[in-house]
Amino acid sequence: MTRETAAPERKLPRRVTPQYLENAALHYLERFATSSANLRRVLMRKVDRSVQAHGTDREEGARWVDELIARYQRSGLLNDTAYAEMRAASLHRRGTSTRAIREKLASKGIGRDEADKALDTLDEEVDGDLNLTAALALARRRRLGPYRLPEKRAEHRDKDLAALGRAGFSYDIARRVVDAEDPDSLLDSGE
């Protein structure tokens, strides 16, 4: 067979052991901040691949994962509350609406109560309305509304409103941001 037609050899997944799971978890935590539920999902994918390839007992693998996560929670290596607060603040700075922040936290396994607490903490730290400040951050990042060249603003108004709407902001907030002459005055006035 020629190089182009030869199918690449599939690498056989490793057999899961408690030590392998711990190494994989630590390696993952070195690279990413994560929630307990998301780390469980990552590790269980490894267990499931081992079950398929080696016939590993899935229940035993799940028990190893649960013990590992419980140990990391006790030691403070995994802290869902701190993760939720950090992730909510990061998303807010990027211009993510509170609705989208809740959805992204939920996709990482953060419960509604923890997400609400994270947003409450963020609300205490941020001056003004969370959604308004996030919409302004998104507008600045994407050069929408008042951050667009003055001669182009009128012709792109509807597109700017739609972009903010797709990002999860209400029409009222999108309109206030897009129609603002000076974004700083919008925050100062507290309209």
Results as ranks from 00 to 15, higher is better:
residue 19 Q to K: 10
residue 143 R to T: 07
residue 139 A to F: 01
residue 126 V to P: 00
residue 152 K to R: 14
residue 87 R to L: 11
residue 182 D to E: 14
residue 123 D to L: 08
residue 95 G to A: 08
residue 136 L to E: 00
residue 158 D to V: 07
residue 84 A to Y: 02
residue 185 S to I: 12
residue 49 R to M: 13
residue 115 A to T: 03
residue 148 R to D: 07
residue 168 G to P: 00
residue 76 G to R: 08
residue 134 A to D: 00
residue 86 M to I: 05
residue 71 R to P: 01
residue 29 L to V: 04
residue 119 L to N: 02
residue 78 L to W: 01
residue 29 L to K: 05
residue 69 I to D: 04
residue 143 R to N: 08
residue 48 D to V: 00
residue 37 A to V: 09
residue 172 D to H: 11
residue 64 W to M: 10
residue 107 S to T: 12
residue 57 D to P: 02
residue 92 H to Y: 04
residue 111 G to K: 08
residue 116 D to G: 12
residue 66 D to V: 05
residue 178 V to K: 07
residue 99 R to E: 14
residue 34 T to Q: 01
residue 71 R to I: 01
residue 161 L to T: 07
residue 22 E to L: 12
residue 149 L to E: 13
residue 150 P to M: 05
residue 162 A to H: 13
residue 129 D to W: 04
residue 159 K to L: 13
residue 183 P to R: 04
residue 24 A to H: 05
residue 162 A to T: 11
residue 44 M to P: 00
residue 37 A to L: 07
residue 162 A to E: 15
residue 136 L to A: 01
residue 27 H to N: 13
residue 11 K to E: 13
residue 77 L to A: 13
residue 10 R to C: 10
residue 52 Q to T: 11
residue 50 S to L: 02
residue 25 A to P: 02
residue 174 A to S: 14
residue 58 R to S: 12
residue 93 R to L: 09
residue 170 S to P: 08
residue 43 L to S: 03
residue 166 R to C: 04
residue 33 A to W: 09
residue 108 K to H: 15
residue 186 L to D: 01
residue 141 R to G: 12
residue 1 M to E: 13
residue 42 V to M: 11
residue 8 P to Q: 13
residue 66 D to S: 15
residue 34 T to K: 00
residue 141 R to D: 08
residue 92 H to D: 05
residue 80 D to E: 08
residue 61 G to A: 10
residue 84 A to L: 06
residue 17 T to H: 03
residue 165 G to V: 00
residue 114 E to P: 00
residue 189 S to Q: 12
residue 154 A to V: 09
residue 77 L to E: 10
residue 77 L to C: 02
residue 85 E to C: 09
residue 22 E to G: 06
residue 21 L to C: 04
residue 4 E to S: 14
residue 115 A to D: 04
residue 160 D to H: 09
residue 79 N to P: 03
residue 140 R to M: 07
residue 145 G to W: 00
residue 51 V to G: 02
residue 175 R to G: 00
residue 159 K to G: 15
residue 104 K to A: 11
residue 62 A to G: 06
residue 148 R to C: 03
residue 103 E to S: 11
residue 165 G to M: 05
